[in-house]
């Protein structure tokens, strides 16, 4: 077979790209034009970026020359780490407590008040639309600097997300168990207790654990706006240009997050397997 024979077998496949799939081609061209426009919009240039990276060099050097260990304030760093964990734990725990009743109220399976469900869901949407750092900055205004503001912002952001996930889990509960208990003449509370709760508890626990895990990450950044924890220690040092100490704290954060991840993943696996 010559090349010509092969092409004649399926001529479509050997057309140039812009004739094979013109829509994709036009989309690609349009996105490249938009990309160029966006780069122009920000006024970027390669020289600017290269200049910036040249500025990075002294910072990187400072990061890796560790000196003056006596001024590093290790107890402060340790406190920050522990505070971060405490913030994440309490925030997730209280959010879980609040979200359990919310999930029953917003679930089609348990209650049938459509209007109430609609309003709660829209409020949860609003809460989710605001980033956790914005909550933190508002709480810092009201409760002052410190981990309390961080705890409350984790709590608020989690109510938005966990409330949605929990109500979805409740919606997905098996109807047969619920109907069985309803048919034996039980009241609403027994229906929830024996029909719904046993199905959703493992999901709730594993989701809460997952959120604890991701909240230890969020709790790290809350310190940027003054809401306590290790982030406060880190940003203070970055503002004062103690880059070596900043790198040390970043490494500690990475280690802490990895440990929490591994632990929580192991526990979640056990819960779901059971």
């Amino acid at each position: 077979m010559t090349n010509k024979d092969i092409i004649s077998l399926c001529p479509q496949a050997f057309l140039p790209f812009w004739r094979r799939s013109p829509v994709t081609f036009i989309l690609v061209i349009l996105s490249i034009i938009y990309l160029g426009f966006a780069i122009h919009f920000f006024g970027f240039s390669l020289s600017k970026i290269l200049e910036g990276f040249a500025n990075m060099k002294p910072i990187l050097v400072a990061m890796f020359t560790w000196q003056d260990f006596s001024t590093w304030n290790f107890p402060g760093i340790f406190d920050g780490l522990v505070q971060t964990l405490a913030m994440a734990f309490l925030g997730t725990f209280f959010a879980t407590l609040v979200c359990i009743p919310i999930s029953f109220l917003t679930s089609k399976k348990v209650f049938r008040f459509t209007l109430l469900r609609f309003f709660i869901k829209r409020i949860l949407d609003m809460i989710r639309g605001v980033d956790i750092l914005i909550w933190a900055i508002i709480y810092v205004r009201a409760f002052g600097l410190g981990p309390l503001a961080g705890l409350l912002s984790i709590f608020t952001a989690d109510v938005g997300t966990l409330g949605k996930l929990f109500s979805e889990a409740t919606d997905n509960a098996d109807t047969k168990q619920i109907e069985g208990i309803e048919s034996s003449g039980s009241n609403k509370i027994s229906v929830i207790r024996f029909g719904v709760v046993p199905q959703i508890i493992p999901i709730f626990i594993s989701q809460s654990l997952y959120f604890f895990e991701s909240n230890t990450r969020s709790a790290v950044i809350l310190g940027v706006v003054g809401a306590g924890g290790i982030g406060l220690q880190l940003t203070e040092r970055m503002k004062a240009q103690y880059w070596d100490q900043a790198l040390f704290i970043i490494v500690l954060i990475l280690i802490m997050v990895t440990i929490i991840d591994t632990l929580s993943r192991a526990i979640r696996k056990r819960i779901i397997d059971e």
Binding site: Q83, A86, F89, L90, I138, Y139, R141, A142, P147, L148
Partner: peptide, 29 residues
């Protein structure tokens, strides 16, 4: 869980007076 809550609350100095005094300020804001 109970022990963990107690320890965490003491670490971040969580108490009712701070929350009750903060809530009106939050409302104001």
């Amino acid at each position: 869980l109970f022990v963990a809550i107690l320890i965490s609350s003491s670490i971040i100095d969580l108490n009712m007076t701070r929350i009750t005094s903060g809530i009106p300020r939050l409302g104001d804001y």
